[in-house]
Design a protein around this nucleic acid. Sequence first.
DNA 1: TATGTAACCATTTTT
DNA 2: TGGTTACATA
Length: 745
Amino acid sequence: MEHDLLSDLTPAQREAVTHFEGPLLILAGAGSGKTRVITRRVAYLLSQGVRPSNILAITFTNKAAGEMRQRIEALVPGSRVWISTFHALGARLLRQYADRLNLDPNFTIYDQTDRARLVKMAMEDAGVDNGRFTPETVQSAISKAKNQLLGPERYAAKAHDFYGQTVAQIYPAYEKRLRDANALDFDDLLYWPALALKHDPELRSELDARFRFVLIDEYQDTNQAQYAIARGLTVDHPNLCVVGDPDQSIYGWRGSDIRNILDFERDFPQSRVLTLNRNYRSTRAILHAASALIAHNRHRKPKDLVTDNPEGAPVTVLTFENGTDEAVGIAQRIKRVVEENPARHYRDFAVFMRINALSRSLETAFVKHRIPFQIVKGLAFFERKENRDILAYLRLLLNPRDDISFLRIVNEPTRGIGKISLEHLKAYAAPREMSLLEATSEIQRITMIKGKAASGLRDFNLLMRELRGYVESTPDEVIRQVLELSGYRQMLKDSREEEDQERLANIEELITAAKQYASEDSSRTISDFLENITLASDVDGWDERQDCVSIMTLHAAKGLEFPVVYMIAVEQGILPHERSLPREDQLEEERRLAFVGMTRAKEELYLSHARMRDFRGNTLYAISSMFLDELPRDAIQSLDLSASAAGTLSAMEQWRTGGGEAASHGWAEAGVGSRPAPIPPTRRSDGTDKDYAEGMIVRHERYGEGRVIEVGGHGALRKVKIRFRTAGERTFLVEKAQLEIVKRG
DNA sequence: TATGTAACCATTTTT
DNA sequence: TGGTTACATA
């Protein structure tokens, strides 16, 4: 048994697996087999007689948790180790110990959208008229505070500038709203358990004893609240094993604190540190390029990844004319390879993007060329209006105080309840500390509401009462009843709109999903189903069994691997993202993001960019990413497929090398790796009104007035760079720009 | 109150 | 470019 667990491991891996008690930090480079190490380690602990219930393993996504569970099951059948994400752990602990925390165990978990609405309400409560403050920015400030375990009081004490003070006013109102609605937000799932572990010694030691061995994956992406939880669980039994890679920390914007991993040795004395730097995943060429890139991060401990893998094909930089060409070009290349090479399947390919907005062009191209694909965005299906509506019914059913859900569905389908009536209802409920649903029971006392609105609210109240009789039914049955009794099905069925029939089909699919979810474990309730959806990550919806190309964000790609990877829009402003450019730490995080993407590739890696990119309506000049310049020339080959290159190259595309492994050195002499040549001029009539020169003052319909600071390019690609008073610097194509000349030089 | 149209908005990454 | 929200109208 023990022999099986260790026989195929390297000495370093074996040491990580067999380390028994005491803190352990495993610095696991990309592709170094860390998932294998963690699962083996759990199996090893079990083989040493540790009880399954004494082990807690934390993963970054539910999908990863499920996979680990399966692998452990394969090694040690029947063991019931607790494996989940931090958030799912938090939710479960909070429901279990609800009474000690003065919580109602039926609390609702509010997602991003709900939170934004609640923040908006809280802003009104606090009397902050949202001129400069958007609910989203306030929400993220509150989120940050909670991640640092700062409650409203301590946050207020620390708030010095106007912005912080404003948020400090909204924060308590937001918390009150949450409490009143018996709801928690994502951060609360970490915040409250962390505080409980700090302030409730009895609970802390109970949990510490329960989880004698704790393992945390992706430790570089934990935040302070998560750190506090890990800490609290490992005081009496300091058997904490964390696995991570500082080079793959990509969630700093979400509050993750890279210091958690950097300071581990200091925080956990007598800890053992092991490094896994042998990569089993990628070709040398890919590793060489990725390593060279990440080496540009200045705030980084130098670290080398080594491999015995073959050199492989060079990393290829593809240049396209525009975003459409890029999407179509990649789709065609993939299709051609799959059709010509029987060993390649669509599932071998992945396309990564920095921002979701880029998925549309890919979707269009893949549909057009009939290439099977899936866009990995788990929540998208549940975020459709019709599904959100149904889910809101369910949430209100389980938690009658959930006013956000109440407001969403009280008039869906329409029951003649308008804004005015709801204002009256709120005015009645608020001073009485009642929820909106509760207030509908006393509708006859609210004299301001009459007629259709009054009867509508009464009907709604009766509906919810009736539905409550079904909460114990199977998840799919509950949803079915909601769909029928609410009149939602009738509404969609009666609609003449094509779209509404599709919506009905989506809800049917939701029922199927619920049924399937329940079938895996008969004890699962509708409440479990809801929680599962809310805590789902994007990759959780990814079905790797399907033979299709996977399209996802770089963030979603973390932890995955594919034989062939395309990274698109490797352009300045996108990767690195423009919002990250000004700050070095954020720029370095972008570089890590690129590194994560590159190291997902096992055999082939393509980095593409376009000369022009359509963005929110207008076509902008795209500059290839600085990260491409940071790749060593001898590690990449370039392939220019843009229209401007077509003039010099006879074929649609022309490799500058023979391609493949044999030529992996031949292209260096050919001067490959150099940047695409300037665009050859194409004549066009010169509108005098578009004859810009530096120093001119122009006006843009959206960005207002600005000064021309640069003019360049030729013909159709003539561009003009303008520094706006308020909107910063932007570059436009002269031909397309909506500019009005205010003052000539 | 419900519906349609217009202006208007914002647009990273996500548990 | 497209989705959402505000407003006017029936």
